[in-house]
Amino acid sequence: MIRDITLGQYYPANSILHKLDPRVKLLATLTFIAALFVAKGWPGYLAATIFLVVIIRLSRVPFSFMVRGLKAIVMILMITVVFNLFLTPGDKILVQVWKLKITDVGLRTAIFMAIRLTYLIVGSSVMTLTTTPNDLTDGLERLMGPLKKLHVPVHEVSMMMSIALRFIPILLEETDKIMKAQIARGADFENGNLIQKAKNLVPLLVPLFISAFRRANDLAMAMEARCYHGGEGRTKMKPLIYARRDYAAYGVVICFLAVIIALRVVL
């Protein structure tokens, strides 16, 4: 289940999307999400669909990878759809079962909500799958740069994020291992009521925390040993410099937003 989350996972490939500046990808993703909420009616969604399909093809990441990210939100998706389907009032009642009605407006909203959410997740997955976590945090660091003047520890926050991303898979594996080791000692993580279940987690959580602290300690030492002393006086191996393709990408994104707005205004 946890392993199905593709957000935050990088898929190495050699595509134009992989080469784009992370700032472009971040801003484009935000724009795309905004556009999803601006879009209205079938033409708008058609435009978004075309845009998304083209982007996915360009990324050279297998489609099955994107879809896997959806598994994690299937429940949220279902709930949204069900709520919209049954609880939206409308003029024409399509189906009525006891007190629950499905109206034409309800059906429309449900479908659009489902599309929006799906596209939102797939769109963000495209970004994380084509951007290394380091690039991502670099991009964020640069975009947030102005906040430094307000004494926001931008460098530290982005360093923390990239370290968290590096250690998530390691800690997941560790959780799995400790769980198995305790099951081998007769631990039970499945049965019992809520309080019992919470109590049963102690043999898992204590070793996990200890291990996380030990790792944090080791890592801090290793970073210091490699002369890490905060963001000051640091150079970058991969500094962010806009290339021509990045400007072109901005152009494409702006055009896309314009089309979506135009469709909304015209229709």
């Binding site: 291992k177 080791a181 081998a184 007769g186 200890i210």
Partner: peptide, 14 residues
């Protein structure tokens, strides 16, 4: 599981 005891690698981590 109680008849076949399994000691994992680095068991002190549990």
């Amino acid at each position: 599981r109680s008849k076949v005891g399994l000691v994992f690698q680095y068991p002190e981590h549990q």
